[in-house]
């Protein structure tokens, strides 16, 4: 039962990440791409924690903790960069 739930979560998260990547590639404007990246970072966090619980390894959870805290600094950098450039991506 536990193995079923864990593997089900794995496949669902991979499917969600794939669909969000399609949105990231299709998105007509920069805002749509940023929305997709925001969702993608949360899914990556969930995958890291899931992998840590599946393999019973604490190291993945430490990596997930640091990724969670410093994850949104990347968004700050990207939005600052896009605000300064005139041409739309």
């Amino acid at each position: 039962m536990t193995n079923f739930i864990l593997s089900g979560m794995k496949y669902f998260l991979i499917v969600f990440a794939t669909i969000t990547t399609i949105r990231l590639l299709l998105g007509p404007s920069a805002s749509d791409r940023l929305v997709a990246m925001n969702v993608l970072s949360s899914i990556a966090l969930a995958l890291l924690i899931l992998w840590g619980v599946t393999t019973k390894n604490v190291l993945y959870l430490d990596v997930a903790l640091v990724y969670d805290i410093f994850g949104f600094l990347g968004f700050l950098a990207i939005t600052r960069f896009l605000k300064n450039t005139k041409d739309k991506l």
């Binding site: 404007s29 700050l76 896009l82």
Partner: peptide, 15 residues
């Protein structure tokens, strides 16, 4: 915090 940064970017962008 992450989605607030994105929403503020949309609010200030030209679109």
């Amino acid at each position: 915090t992450g989605s607030s940064i994105v929403s503020k970017f949309i609010w200030e962008s030209e679109e």
